[in-house]
Nucleic acid binder design. Structure first.
Lengths: 122, 122
DNA sequence: TAATCATATTCAAATCCGTGAATATGATTA
DNA sequence: TAATCATATTCACGGATTTGAATATGATTA
């Protein structure tokens, strides 16, 4: 039980919560970025070239569906996936749909958060 | 490439087509019924207690997303899943969401199609 | 406590989706 | 070809989703 929206609901509602969260290009892109571990909102925003408030909106959907979790560290909030099974699902759907190995809408800007700056890569 | 909606589209559109098709209680219920092989529309309609035209609408979505295929035999049209990987995905999402093993909205009426009548079960 | 930083929230408009109702299509049989 | 059967399609409306814009919140530092 990874979210609280699954109790006493019509059949398949619990699954719908997850499918709904995954049915969105930007949210899928966010998950792709999170494949290699946690990232802060500012990094996701810069990397995906989307406004911060918009990324926040999508992160909230992902968080409320139970797919990601957040952790605050000073100024930054770092998001990560709760259960890596989600990647198997995404990969499965990708295989089903015959899509290529995900062409990410990449890196418009540099993220200036501490962890990104220290890495100094990507 | 199991559907035609995956070419020259924005990133993750192909995956979205599948996620969208799966994000629907009745369509998930239909897939559950199709776990044990092909079934005609009248059976799905009777078994799930939904009007035939409504089941048809949902089957069209599933078919256009490439998840199911149809086969005509006389009066009846039989639907079946194209790739059983879809069940692994559904099961994965179910595990992820912590849902129970799918409580189907079951059997209101009897289907009178040839294949159902001959089986004379369920 | 005031300024600053990253992040979250609210609001509204446009679009999309779900679904009932009615009806069309197309194969089959008489 | 007319009747009948299973299935498919169209239409319309109400509700949900998407997304830009503006702003709020809350932690941190000076």
């Amino acid at each position: 039980m990874i979210n609280d929206q699954t109790k006493n609901k019509p059949p398949f509602e619990a699954e719908s919560v997850v499918f709904k969260a995954l049915n969105h290009p930007v949210r899928l892109a966010i998950l792709e970025v999170l494949r290699d571990g946690e990232h802060c909102v500012c990094h996701l925003s810069a990397y995906l070239g989307q406004r911060q408030s918009y990324i926040s909106q999508q992160l909230i959907v992902l968080r409320e569906s139970g797919l990601v979790q957040d952790r605050r560290d000073g100024w930054n909030v770092y998001y990560s996936v709760v259960n890596s099974l989600v990647f198997e699902i995404v990969d499965g759907v990708r295989a089903l749909s015959g899509a290529e190995a995900s062409t990410l809408p990449i890196a418009q800007t540099e993220c200036t958060c501490p962890s990104c700056s220290s890495k100094k890569s990507n």
